[in-house]
Amino acid sequence: MSPRAQAGLWFAQRMSAVVLAFAVVVHLATMIYAVRSGLSAAEILDRTRGNLPWFLFYAGFVVAIAVHLPIGLRNVIAETLGWRGRLLEACTAALAAGLLAWGLRAAWAVYAPGGA
C-alpha cells in the first residue's frame, strides 16, 4: 500500500471518529431512554420498524465503525505482530467487510417490517 493510501486511511479514521463521536452519544442517550422508560422489546421494535431516519442513522453508525475500527486494529496488528503487506491488508479488509455485513444486518433486522 502506498504512503498516499496510508495517509488516506489515517484521514478516513479521523473523519469516521467525528461521526462516531456524534453517533455514540445519540445511541447511548437512546439506550438510556429506552431502559429508563421500561420499553419492552416489542415496544422498541414498534418504534424502529419502517422508521427510515433511524435506519439511516444506524446504517451510518455501522459504516463509521466499519471504517474506524479496522484501521486502528491494522496499526495494532502491525505493531504487535509485525504483519506487513498483503496479509495485513487482507486482514483489515476482511474485518471491515465482516463489521459492515453484521452491523447492517442488525440495523436491517430492527427496521424491516416483519423482521429479518
Binding site: P3, R4, A7, A78
Partner: peptide, 12 residues
C-alpha cells in the same frame, strides 16, 4: 511531504 506520509512516517 510524500516522504514523511504513511505508516513509516508521521501517521504512525
Amino acid at each position: 511531504l510524500a516522504a514523511v506520509a504513511g505508516d513509516a512516517g508521521c501517521h504512525a
